[in-house]
Nucleic acid binder design. Structure first.
Lengths: 234, 234
DNA sequence: GAGTGGTCTAGACCACACT
DNA sequence: GTGTGGTCTAGACCACTCC
């Protein structure tokens, strides 16, 4: 249940005037919505701004607020593999290949802002959709952040584990995407021929204070996976 | 010059309290900023929200507003190739390979929301950074949107041309990224061996009303180009 | 000119962090 | 408890679109 009025208004406006509408349909005016829902116009504006930020409506000064219509993939958001695969209508699963503690080393130390000798926990996992391998993922975490994590179930959602067990909340992530080919040993795990094309994604996840929490390198098979995202101008 | 107070406040706050600061430094309180700049607290909040959206500060309820420090690549924004290459400190240029009008066909018609017979203008360009080929780009536009475009200079920024000459403003774009290998004929144009890995980006750009303006398929050489973007959670 | 969204003010109270 | 950011109200005026 929404705790704030603007969240409530947002959902009521969405259900009443946005969902199932074609594009370009005008919503009631902000003043009319304020009266309809018995709130101040500023609260309505807060709710509409949220809908606009999610790409569900657009506003034209002097004219009105209008529906966008069938939504363009709205993945401005960071989603975990688990959420991502579920949203594509498939069943995610994970196979843990190895889990160990080691010194960070150069690249990981730089990504996590720790010294090269700092111990990190490194998980290597194959992630599957509908029981079919989609990617190999190597995740590194500061060992000090996640005591006794090796005793946990490491085949579920890592973000859920970080948040539920350790109170570590990922706020955003910088991702670098490159194109590469799979090595023979990786090819076997992914079930593709050696030298098949693949997407490599290097991701550094940080909390709200910009402290690095996770560094992950993922190798996705190109024949089964593509990255979709929406970018805005201005 | 900013026309609105919140834009002015935003810049003054940024210059005074954010630029050149390390991460985690507290800004003055919203009430203090309102007094300092002689505006209402709501106006300060508007300005701070803008800085927060750009990833320059973060806010913690009950605690304060803090600097993020060295900025994580802030490419939540859609940038043209021209802007992108310039921001990496290189000099962009373009070589036009072909420019012609043809029926949209199936894939392009779907992307641009027109019938398969609708005429589209199709530009094939090699884009270079520091005179080195970076990608091959095939851009399709509705011919009705861009009359006489074949007479224009097609080796500059297309977004500038669309906006300046035709009043078409790109608001956002959906991008789909896949990994592939280059065909022999493309290899020659890109200056890489055949079957070298490459990133394919398919982009549909739309205006504020979500009307498709441009559909572009770009092939980037993997050894010289990677995609960086930041995603947020929540 | 009428009506729309955009900006701004003045003030109140709430939820949360810190000590 | 004190102080912070978060929410919300009531009202005014401005900039723009559309007729």
């Amino acid at each position: 249940m929404p705790r704030h009025k603007h969240e409530l208004i947002r959902e009521r406006v969405r259900k009443t005037y946005v969902d199932d509408q074609p594009g370009g349909v005008a919503l009631p005016t902000e003043r009319a919505l304020a009266e309809e829902f018995g709130v101040n116009r500023a609260t309505v504006r807060h709710a509409l701004s949220s809908l606009e930020a999610d790409g569900l409506v657009y506003r034209v000064q002097g004219a009105g607020t209008f529906t966008v219509g069938q939504t363009i993939a709205k993945s401005l958001k960071l989603t975990s593999f688990t959420e991502d695969i579920r949203s594509r209508g498939m069943v995610p699963s994970t196979k843990l290949l190895s889990a160990r503690e080691r010194p960070a080393g150069d690249a990981i130390g730089r990504a996590l802002h720790v010294s090269t000798a700092e111990p990190v926990v490194q998980l290597t996992r194959v992630r599957l959709a509908n029981a079919e391998p989609m990617c190999i993922e190597v995740v590194s975490l500061r060992a000090a952040d996640v005591p006794d994590i090796l005793a946990e179930d490491l085949e579920g959602s890592l973000y859920d584990l970080l948040e539920g067990r350790y109170g570590l909340m990922v706020a955003r992530a910088e991702q670098v995407v490159t194109s590469t080919v799979v090595e023979p040993e990786q090819a076997e795990m992914l079930g593709v021929p050696a030298l098949a094309p693949a997407l490599q994604i290097r991701r550094t996840s940080v909390d709200a204070r910009s402290r690095p929490l996770e560094y992950a390198v993922s190798l996705y098979r190109a024949d089964r996976y593509e990255i979709r995202f929406t970018v805005r101008r201005d």
